[in-house]
């Protein structure tokens, strides 16, 4: 039993992009253990999603049932436990999204497995896979080993490439023996936050604002739209209620690693840096020349964001 089971995430009939990065991680672990990669997808009416996933060359186990319509960890976990045992998985993984972070620890507990969260890469030798992961808000990197027969992990999507399609896997129905009536959790609604902008964790460019905006995000948003970028924010801006919660970049918010990250009016608290320091190019615009963000920015501009951002947006417009 050295097989690898990766739990795919689907939403509204589509595979979440983060899953493709988790598949890459799963392929890497399977190469190390000499095992076979399996994919699991759960939901209701997920035939097309399972078909899509079969293009990644691994057997897809589709758990299709009304009781799995919503992503309730209590309902999903036992299905995955049964499946992990059936395919003799030594490693069970997923992307470290809200879904994965809610569900996988519950699966781990039921499998009596140890777990590593937000894995950045693998270490160790041969089939003895260790997990590299951040601790203390990314100020420390740890190499951890899991001393249980089954090992569970979630991966930070930005640290693994998106898997390319290869081969064709079979799609089989996974067994679902969950008694809906016995569930202690009920799904009571979902409010989608829609945006015309790219998803924060998937965008090529992110423009983020902080306390320096004083609550006026217009220049931040205008520059973002000029760059076809996602908009992010520091915790200070979110806590002040200036922008929605899901814009927060940081240890406790979203971790992003775009090609370009523009931090406007963000001083650079440790917890914010933990969420964006993997970006390829970092630009900081801040009035305070001593702001810590300048210590890691590739290009720092000491300026008023209300002047500098519109000017930069104007340059972009003209360059087209």
């Amino acid at each position: 039993m050295a097989n690898v089971l990766i739990v795919a995430e689907q939403f509204g009939g589509a595979v979440r992009k983060a899953t493709l990065h988790a598949i890459s991680a799963g392929r890497e672990v399977a190469r190390r253990t000499g095992g076979t990669l399996h994919l699991a997808v759960l939901g209701k009416g997920i035939g097309p999603v399972a078909e899509e996933l079969s293009g990644y060359g691994a057997e897809v186990h589709a758990a299709d049932a009304a009781v799995l319509e919503h992503p309730l960890a209590e309902a999903h976990a036992p299905v995955l436990v049964e499946l992990a045992r059936a395919v003799q998985a030594s490693h069970v993984g997923a992307a470290a999204t809200a879904f994965g972070k809610d569900l996988l620890p519950r699966v781990a507990a039921l499998l009596e497995a140890g777990m590593a969260t937000e894995v950045l890469g693998f270490g160790g030798e041969g089939a003895e896979v260790t997990f590299r992961r951040p601790m203390w808000a990314g100020n420390v990197l740890a190499e951890v080993a899991l001393a249980t027969p089954v090992k569970v992990f979630t991966v930070r999507a930005t640290e693994f490439p998106a898997a390319a399609k290869e081969g064709k896997g079979a799609v089989t129905a996974a067994k679902v023996s969950v008694d809906a009536g016995a569930l202690r959790t009920r799904y009571a609604g979902f409010k989608e936050v829609k945006s015309a902008r790219p998803e924060l964790t998937e965008a090529r460019i992110v423009v983020a604002g902080g306390r320096g905006t004083k609550g006026d995000f217009k220049p931040v948003e205008a520059l973002a739209d000029e760059l076809n970028a996602a908009v992010g924010a520091s915790r200070a801006a979110v806590d002040a209620g200036w922008v929605p919660n899901d814009w927060q970049v940081g240890q406790t918010g979203k971790v992003v690693a775009p090609e370009l990250y523009v931090a406007a009016g963000i001083s650079g608290a440790i917890q914010h840096l933990a969420g964006m320091k993997g970006s390829k190019v970092i630009v900081a615009v801040n009035k305070d020349p001593d702001a810590p963000i300048f210590q890691l920015a590739d290009y720092g501009l000491v300026a008023d964001l209300f002047k500098a951002l519109p000017e930069l947006a104007e340059k972009l417009k003209k360059s087209r």
């Binding site: 140890g114 190499e143 951890v144 899991l146 001393a147 320091k277 290009y299 720092g300």
Partner: peptide, 23 residues
């Protein structure tokens, strides 16, 4: 413990680059 920390290290530090004069 089932999660055994084998080794800790500091993440590679990012070198802050240049300050630019203007937009």
């Amino acid at each position: 413990p089932k999660v055994v920390v084998k080794k800790l290290s500091e993440p590679p530090s990012r070198k802050g680059g240049v300050k630019v004069q203007d937009v």
